[in-house]
């Protein structure tokens, strides 16, 4: 039985966060394809009735409608992860750290995500400005990750991946779509590798399976 419905656009990094989290938790769900581009269907009457802010993704389950991506990750983890490791809400400090990273994830969406839409789909934003913001966010993210590496850690919070990692992963991984390569970001590269290694990991266009990279390395 399917547990929720995702209103989905295949090229959206935010929609991918939900698909990835569900896959890692082994949760089955239904999708409704929304013609975000070129149809702008997310701004159509029926979609606005569901989500007045006109954004994707939208998650519906029972009588609940969620329209904020980070909230969907929290809901998925709270509902489907009995171990509580993906969203450790019990410890106030740990919980605070996770929520802090969700804020970082929102900034990555606003900068890298916008730069990517501009580079790919000629989105009407100031391309130079968003690209500069995106680079700044990536540099900041690299520094924060480097602190984690010095602390002997792989993941953003604690010693298990959390919704914080999933929330930040897509737009960091997709930055080359906006012409922002990962060459100068060793900590980011290692962390991306770690996320890709998770059992149940799924891809989206622009984010490849690990085994492809490995095979590419030895021809």
């Amino acid at each position: 039985m399917s547990s929720f419905t995702l209103y989905n656009y295949v090229l959206s990094g935010n929609c991918y966060k939900v698909r990835l989290m569900a896959a890692l938790l082994g949760v089955e769900y239904d999708t409704v394809a929304v013609d975000f581009y070129p149809g702008f269907e997310h701004r159509s009457e029926p979609m606005l009735a569901l989500n007045p802010s006109g954004t994707l993704p939208i998650l519906t389950a029972d009588d609940m409608v969620l329209t904020e991506t980070q909230a969907m990750l929290g809901w998925l983890a709270a509902k489907f992860d009995p171990t509580g490791r993906w969203y450790p809400a019990d410890d106030p400090v740990v919980s605070g750290e996770v929520l802090q990273w969700l804020g970082v994830a929102s900034r990555l969406t606003g900068s890298v995500g916008a730069a990517r839409l501009h580079a790919m789909l000629d989105w009407p934003v100031d391309g130079e400005a968003v690209r500069k913001d995106a680079l700044k966010e990536l540099q900041g993210f690299e520094l924060l990750l480097t602190d984690r590496v010095f602390a002997g850690q792989t993941w953003l919070v604690g010693d298990h991946p959390t919704i914080a990692d999933i929330a930040c992963f897509p737009y960091v991984a997709l930055s080359p779509d906006a012409g922002l390569e990962h060459d100068g970001f060793p900590a980011i590269r290692n962390w991306l590798y770690a996320v890709r290694s998770l059992p149940g990991f799924v891809t989206m266009p622009g984010i490849h399976q690990l085994h492809e990279l490995r095979e590419g390395a030895h021809g």
């Binding site: 656009y9 295949v10 090229l11 394809a33 929304v34 013609d35 581009y37 070129p38 149809g39 269907e41 790919m120 080359p176 779509d177 012409g179 989206m204 266009p205 622009g206």
Partner: peptide, 22 residues
């Protein structure tokens, strides 16, 4: 198929090529 599904099927394929093309 829904129109949106047809478009996204093609877009998914083409965007897989984009990073390689660049």
């Amino acid at each position: 198929s829904e129109f949106a599904e047809l478009v996204q099927f093609q877009q998914e394929i083409f965007l897989q090529d984009r990073s390689i093309l660049e």
